[in-house]
């Protein structure tokens, strides 16, 4: 973190930082049409529409159909959301029902 940023409004900075990325690539790993998978997808869609409208893409990967894809992204829990872009890669596990934690995980909110 740069020292000049320290005293500025964190939320504004985060917002601005988020805005600087014009391409968000998200991957949602699920196993079939399980309730958790459906919930996760609905939650993700909602958050993205609110925060990243127009500059995100979601790829849903069903491990039941493509089991070999799990290893590449080191997926062990389901559902898992992987933020491929912007870097660094972030992983968010769970059905994304805790919106605040999702935003923190996606770096759309500061951790505190």
């Amino acid at each position: 973190m740069k020292q000049t940023d320290v005293n500025t409004d964190k939320r504004a900075r985060e917002k601005q930082q988020g805005d600087t990325h014009d391409k968000w690539v998200l991957r949602l790993y699920v196993a079939g049409q399980s309730p958790k998978a459906l919930t996760a997808f609905a939650n993700l869609k909602k958050i993205c529409e609110e925060q990243l409208k127009g500059k995100y893409s979601i790829e849903v990967i069903d491990l039941l159909e493509n089991p070999q894809k799990g290893a590449a992204d080191q997926i062990f829990a389901l559902p898992t959301l992987v933020r491929k872009l912007p870097v660094p890669v972030r992983k968010i596990i769970g059905d994304l029902s805790n919106t605040e934690r999702v935003l923190i995980g996606l770096d759309l909110l500061p951790a505190d």
């Binding site: 898992t80 890669v89 059905d95």
Partner: peptide
């Protein structure tokens, strides 16, 4: 540090990987 928990989940992916 890369992981954020956001609700219900399971380790099905591990099962799938192992099964695969």
């Amino acid at each position: 540090s890369e992981i954020e928990e956001t609700g219900e989940y399971d380790l099905e992916a591990l099962f799938i990987r192992l099964g695969y």
